[in-house]
Amino acid sequence: MIKLNETPVRTARNFNINNIKLDNIEIRRRLKPFQSAEVFLESSKDVALREIYDIVLEYGICDLLTEQASNYELTVNINSKMKNTVMVDFKFDEENDYLVDKIFIDAKPDTKSNVIIKYTSKDDLEYFHNGDIKLRAGENSEVNITFVNLLNTKSNNFIAIENEILDGAKVNSYMIDFGGKYSISNYYSNIIGKNANNNLSTIYLGKENQVFDLNYIAELYGEKSSVNFEVQGALKDSSKKHFKGTIDFKRGAKKAKGNENEACMLLSDKARSLALPMLLCSEEDVEGNHSTSSGKIGDKELFYIMSRGFDEKSAMKLMVRAKFNKILESIKNDELKNEIIYEIDKRLD
């Protein structure tokens, strides 16, 4: 039994949200290289790709996972305002069933970049994914980064993401979190710079017995820095979601702003939503807001759509799509967006 994804501040143990305990997690020590990974961009003056990684995460999901040896490493140096997208595509199959990837994205000052990191599986075998991703956003840089988890519902998915955001930098992160028997994600943003900004938009979709444990933490140090967590999800069958969102205003983060909004649609009487949206504040001159909500799709809205000729399942799919739409529209890569929409339809069937 291992404890994963501890919250930065504990609450009562019997609320069952401080961490998630899992057993039967196979931590392999000796890994064969993961061969089924493609990077859709070559090194140029704009970007340098190197197969190394020498960063240690501050947070991570737990020491056992953070310290696991990797079988895929990549460092991406962003050197200019790029027009093309850096896309790393991991495809799990029978031969490539176990991935520990470590990726470092280093966006130099005044650069602009788009990055997509995607994990997919086309069959129902049990796969294992443990990823550590570190992003450093230099002064006045802008990084748009999308994480796509389209694994099947038999696999285990662990992903730890860390940002270091310097003066005037902006990081827009998108998380598409659909796969995994257990999908455990840890997102930590160190918003250290003055006027630094981080937006994180997540959609998750659970079915069968899937368990999602989302632990999002933003620490604001910089004056006039800001963070925004927008999390939309839907749970069907007996799936569960634990959302732990922490916005921590540190002393000195004057005029900083933090917002988090989490909304969960429950599509079944057996689905379960657990949420802990925390605001921690050691600075007077800040604005912090959070809101969270859970509930089923409104009967009136469903009735309205069905009165237009849709059956109940199609109406329900439309409603879920509508809730996810704002985040889906932010994904500029049409091919990827269509793939995600296809997955939403398939997983809601």
Binding site: F15, L266, L274, A275, P277, H290, S291, S293, G295, K296
Partner: peptide
């Protein structure tokens, strides 16, 4: 902490600091 175990519910929480 919010722990919702049924779909037939209207739950909302908001906080300001």
């Amino acid at each position: 902490t919010a722990d919702v175990r049924t779909e037939e519910v209207e739950f909302s929480h908001e906080a300001k600091i």
